[in-house]
Structure formats: C-alpha cells, structure tokens
Design a protein around this nucleic acid. Structure first.
Length: 476
RNA sequence: GUGACUAUCGUCUAAUGGUAAGACAACGGUUUGUGGUACCGUGAACGAGGGUCCGAUUCCCUCUAGUCACCCCA
C-alpha cells in the first residue's frame, strides 16, 4: 500500500499537483539551505513536506471515526461505572519527569522519546505514556488528601519515535486508568477486571492476561543478582543483544525471542522465587481474586515491562489472531514507589493503558461493529433564490425539533437534489420552491411511497414526524 | 536503530523503453419543478530526486513512505 491521500483533501481541484511542484522547486532552495544547517537535515523537499504526514503519523479519516466513537464511548462509560474521574494532562512535560519515572536506561527514554528544547531553553518531551504526567498532576494538586483510592482516567495521543508498522505508530492513542492510595491486591484484581470489561465490551474475544510479579526494588535487586550470576556463567551462548542487556537490564534477557536465549533462560532463576514475603503474599492473593473472577490469565514469569517504575504486579493484555500470533493491546501494573520517587508522599498506585489503535485494528479484524452515527432520515431540497433563503431557516427549525436533516444546498436542479436524497436513503424529502416560498408552505414527500402533500409552514414538523413514525412501526 | 519487500486516477486494478487502459466512486446531462435502472459525457494517476538512453512510468542508484521480520512495546 502506498501513501493514501484523502478523498477530502482532493477537493481543492484548482490546485494541480504539477503546478505546485513547478512553483516550489525553483524558490525552495533558500529555505532548504536553512534546513540543511541542522545536523541531520530531512531529505524531503519542501513540497513533499507540505502534502505528507510525518512518518508514523496518520489522519483518522471520517470513515474510521465510527470505530473511534465506539471505543471512546465504551471507555468513558466503563470509567464512570468504575468511579474514575477524567483528567487531561498536557501533551508536553519536562523531559526530566519522564526520565525520572520511566527510567533512563529504558528503550522508551533512550531511543523513543520526542525530545526538544523550547525557545525558552527548557528541555521538554512529548509524553510517551500517561502515568508520569498523571502522577505529576496528582502530586502537584495535592490529590493525596482526597478519599482513597483516587481514580483517574484519561484518553489521548502519546508519542514514541519508533519504526512504524501496522498497529504501531509514532503518534498513537491510549486510554489510561490509574488508582492511587490503595495497596490491597484486590485493587490489582479490579484493575484487571476493568481492563477485561473494556476490551470485551468492545466485542473482542480471544483475550488473555499475562500476569507476573516483579516484587519490590530490594527483592528485584536480589533476583537480578542471582539471574546475572546464572547467565554470566554461560554468557557467550547468549545473543549479542542479551550480553549487553546483562549489565544494563538483566531481566530483559528473559524477554528475548532468540531461540538460544530462550533455551538458556528456561531454567534460569525466576523472579517469583525471589519475591519478598509481602510481594509473594500480594501476588498469591491477586491470583485468588482472578480465579474468583474467572478471568482468563496465565502466569508469565518472563513478563517484564519496559518501564522501571513498576513494583509487584505487572500484566499485559494479549490478543490472539487466527494464526495464533499474539500481540499486546495494553498493559499495566503496580507502581507503589513512583509518587514518592517524584517527590510526593509515599502512595501506592496501580494502573494500565490500552492501545486504542490496536484495539480498533483488532475490532476490524474480528469484524466487530463500529458505532453508527444517527443517520439523517429527512432531506431538504430547495429551488430558486427565494426558496434558498427560506431553506436555511427551515433547516434550523427542523433541527431544533430533533429532526436530522441532510441537504445539498449547493446544487441547482431539483432532479440532482432528489438523486442525492435517494442515494442517502432518506425517508422524507421536504421541497421548497419558488411557489412554496411565496405561500409559506412546503412539499413533504414520502420517499418510499412516492406520495407527497403540500403543507403550511406550521405543519411541516408534524407531517414529517408522522411519516417517520409509520415507517418506524412498519420496520418493527 | 537493522534487514527484506512494495509504490500507477479518490479506491481497486491493467499495460508499456516512445508520457498510460478499465472498473467503482465523483461531477454533469438525456427538454426546462420530482429520485432508485439505463444511456451519454466531464474531470482525475505513473511517490520525489538523480543516472543510463535519442527517449523512462518501465532499467539502475538515492531518498521518502508503507508493509513484514528483528528490536521494542501499545
């Protein structure tokens, strides 16, 4: 598939592409030189930049909106049902917030953040995930004094400078849920329950949770030591990547897809065995709750997450497609230490994020119905200057009475307007011509039977509603 | 960040070393104020830049973008 241009964008018929090019290439040189001064200059011409989204970014066109609408609605409903309050935080934060929370040596921070310096000299980044900003807001606004747990919900785009492919974009959407101030494992279970609810409400099947516990920082350190000791002995059997990981982030070796690494780690020490008493207990109780809820989960001792702030519970939501391939629709976990490490009162917390783009991809794959916007059932046709003037007012009046109207005011002939009306599948067409405009009347035409009657302005709404009502009854 | 494959109207496809055909969609019309079919017509594309060549959409290179695998994750 090549880059698709929107049908809507094509409207500007007057602007021929070739003309644009010609006009541009000659005088683009001066601006180009400015661009090349920067270290890594883009090799795209000015004209291409003009008509192309940035790599990994995309337009969500009207055709796709019904899916997004359904997802948004489900998200906000579920959030309400579970007592979450909406919060919106800025797209941009100080880079430091992300490095501090997510961790300097993570992939996200190391190579995936959109970081830049503002005119004022601040180092800032586009958010690569939600939790950091929300945690910041929690502290900044003293939300620690609110009744616990504090439940916050957010939706919006996040940014990761990654190499794009299907279901992976540089700008993508997440729905995010976080609960602060409660350390009981029942919250962990409820979090997973909520995630399951959202996803299944969206019509997705073949969902499974991968859960693991990575303990608290101290137990994790013990575990990492043991893991390094185990792996170090057979270091040269690991792939190059993992050899590097061994020193930076040894638990990531468990995530490696290379056969030899998988084999090597098969009998490696498991994080679960190194859990401190409390974490072990926490995990055990979580599993009991999950069993009670009959949620589809598997314990995945290899599950590590790409963010450093997690403690104890971590989980991911996986979907399996026809070929048995699994991929993640979202994930989350507990982060009891984050608030404190950012400078707030010690506050336990847990949350998760859902990848909306992937969920929609999955909805399409499994042919889940999108949300259907209410369709106009009435068309308003107009003929002649006088009628044209009247029709705008009539449009507003009908709309005020709850009647959704389609129109094609720009068209001249009645014939072409009716053709449009027909294609739109409306049930009623209201026709106002020169004569009707003078008489303060309109023709109300039943598009199914083809019959029509002339009614005075005051009776138009009733006449329309009558036809719509009988049609509705016939359908049932 | 690494590797592989791909790139033609809005969409889906075709052909070609001599600047491109069709279908769907769009727009207009078939006697001027009445729609589903039919018929006619109109507009619309070789991703960008370089090279080879008398000549390139076609061959080569670079770039860009998309898809896939890796990496990572959502």
């Amino acid at each position: 598939m090549s880059q698709k241009k929107s049908a809507l964008a094509g409207n500007g018929k007057g602007v021929k592409k070739t003309e644009v090019k010609k006009a541009g290439t000659t005088k683009a040189s001066s601006t180009k030189n400015i661009a090349t001064k920067k270290t890594s200059a883009p090799s795209v011409s000015q004209e291409e930049m003009l008509l192309q989204t940035l790599r990994g970014m995309r337009d969500i066109l009207p055709d796709e909106q019904p899916y997004w609408e359904r997802v948004r609605k489900t998200l906000t409903h579920s959030a309400q049902e579970y007592g979450f309050q909406r919060i919106d935080t800025p797209l941009v934060e100080f880079t430091h917030l992300f490095t501090r929370s997510i961790g300097t040596e993570t992939d996200i921070v190391e190579k995936e953040m959109y970081t830049f310096t503002t005119r004022g000299g601040d180092k800032v980044s586009l958010r690569p995930e939600f939790t950091a900003g929300i945690a910041r807001a929690f502290i900044e606004h003293g939300m620690g004094v609110l009744p616990k747990p504090v439940k916050l919900f957010s939706v919006g785009p996040v940014y990761r400078y990654d190499r794009p492919q299907e279901g992976r974009y540089r700008e993508f959407w997440q729905g995010n849920f976080d609960m602060f101030g409660e350390s009981d494992p029942i919250l962990d279970a409820q979090t997973i329950q909520l995630a399951y609810r959202v996803v299944s409400q969206l019509g997705l099947r073949n969902i499974e949770f991968q859960v693991n516990s990575i303990g608290v920082p101290e137990s994790r350190r013990d575990y990492e030591k043991a893991l390094v000791r185990y792996l170090d002995a057979q270091k040269n059997k690991l792939c190059q990547n993992c050899r590097d990981r061994l020193t930076v982030s040894p638990m990531r070796v468990l995530d490696c897809k290379e056969d030899k690494c998988i084999q090597l780690t098969a009998h490696a020490p498991q994080s679960l065995d190194y859990l401190d008493e409390e974490s072990r207990n926490h995990f055990k109780r979580l599993l009991e709750y999950l069993d009670e809820l009959e949620l589809p989960y598997t314990i995945n001792t290899r599950l590590v997450r790409g963010l450093n702030y997690y403690t104890k519970t971590v989980f991911e939501i996986w979907s399996t497609d026809k070929d048995g391939k699994k991929y993640s629709l979202g994930g989350g976990g507990r982060y009891d230490g984050l608030i404190q490490s950012l400078g707030g009162e010690s506050t336990p917390a847990i949350g998760f994020g859902l990848g909306l783009d992937r969920i929609i991809l999955e909805m399409k794959r499994t042919q889940v119905k999108p949300y259907n916007e209410p369709k106009a059932r009435v068309f308003l046709a107009q003929l002649g200057d006088m009628a044209k003037k009247k029709s705008l007012k009539l449009f507003a009046e009908l709309e005020k009475n709850g009647i959704l109207i389609a129109e094609s005011f720009g068209r001249g002939s009645l014939k072409s307007q009716l053709r449009v009306a027909n294609r739109l599948g409306v049930e009623v067409t209201v026709i106002v011509g020169q004569k009707e405009a003078l008489d303060e009347t309109a023709i109300v035409k039943d598009m199914i039977s083809g019959t029509q009657e002339t009614v005075t302005n005051g009776r138009i709404v009733d006449a329309i509603k009558k036809i719509l009502k009988t049609n509705q009854e016939l359908k049932v």
